[in-house]
């Protein structure tokens, strides 16, 4: 078996050091064992594994052993292969804990649904020899939205007037994309700013990673909507502002000033930036601890946001990162 992987690598990628050629995997069930130099054969192609994908938290690498950064030996293209990993775990959202499920079949289904829709990452799903649905993803060459915003070196007022209008326009597009998922009875499941990638070549914003799922019977899209509110807050505020970072104390604030789920997070941006339009602030207030009514759907959120966009001064400038 190891000879087969070596042969494939030598045939397609002769520059790769043969000493690192590993095993050829047609069954990806034991994904922890699959590592650098191994080859995964799926969907009629062979993918050389370069490394495990990882998330960086607190300066540490947290490897995701079921997500492999690969190179297709036949095409030379870089791909990400997501292997089957069923897990469930408690996830803290503010003071609440919800059970999160990682579902390969959900992600595979959404990939089929959004095929050709460039508002989303693209990929195909192929069963391996054991029937595991392996998702072969195209790499979105870009950076996450939080990095995009953090790269803007402007004081908030200039950012808000010169950059934010263009970002709001893009954000509306991603909201429409999310609404499309909901119309098709699908949750994204992990709506956060680092799951929107801004493509370098086009500047397009694209959703990635659809494999989280939650059991919210009565409000299946509530978590997605809450995620949209958080992203809007981040975009409008050019970052997250907490009581501590603003030098405010609890006695300075009301429930309407802060997030319903993160009580130290300021949503009333007009407390910091009085030029933020009231209409926009009112949208953010729907995510505050003082809110009496909530958004029932992405469509409702989009309608309010589009109205807000239309009322912004017409000095939209396309942001050049």
């Amino acid at each position: 078996m190891s000879q087969s992987a070596r042969d494939l690598i030598l045939a397609h990628l002769p520059g790769f050091p043969a000493i690192h050629a590993g095993r050829l995997y047609t069954d990806t069930s034991e994904f922890m064992a699959i590592d650098y130099g191994d080859v995964i054969a799926v969907g009629g192609r062979n993918y050389l594994v370069h490394k495990n994908e990882s998330e960086r938290r607190f300066g540490l690498e947290d490897p995701k052993y079921w997500v492999k950064k690969c190179q297709c030996l036949e095409t030379g293209e870089r791909n990400i292969l997501k292997l089957v990993f069923h897990e469930q775990f408690p996830m803290a959202i503010g003071n609440f804990t919800v059970r999160c499920y990682r579902s390969p079949q959900k992600e595979a289904r959404i990939l089929r649904l959004v095929k050709g829709d460039m508002r989303f990452m693209q990929g195909e799903t192929y069963p391996d020899e054991r029937g595991n649905p392996v998702r072969v993803l195209e790499v979105v060459v870009g950076r996450s939205l939080d990095n995009e915003v953090e790269a803007v070196d402007l004081p908030h007022e200039a950012y808000f007037h010169e950059v934010f209008p263009g970002m709001l326009e893009k954000f509306l597009g991603t909201c429409e994309a999310l609404s499309f998922l909901h119309e098709n009875f699908e949750q994204h499941g992990d709506v956060r700013r680092d799951h929107i990638f801004v493509e370098y070549a086009t500047g397009d914003w694209r959703w990635i990673d659809f494999d989280y799922s939650f059991e919210f019977h009565e409000n299946p899209f509530g978590l997605d909507l809450f995620g949209l509110g958080n992203i809007l807050l981040f975009l409008a505020g050019q970052g997250v502002h907490t009581m501590q970072s603003c030098g405010l104390t609890g006695s300075d604030l009301t429930a309407t000033d802060c997030s319903a789920l993160f009580p130290n997070r300021l949503v009333n941006l007009r407390r910091l930036f009085p030029y933020v339009p009231k209409k926009l602030n009112d949208i953010l207030a729907r995510f505050s601890g003082g809110a009496e009514v909530f958004y029932d759907s992405a469509a409702e959120f989009i309608a309010d946001l589009a109205d807000c966009r239309d009322r912004l001064p017409a000095q939209h400038k396309e942001h050049q990162p």
Partner: peptide
């Protein structure tokens, strides 16, 4: 709570 209602929904409220 209102926060729970926002996130999880509420059959009785509906």
């Amino acid at each position: 709570s209102k926060a729970e209602e926002m996130l999880f929904g509420s059959v009785s409220t509906r």
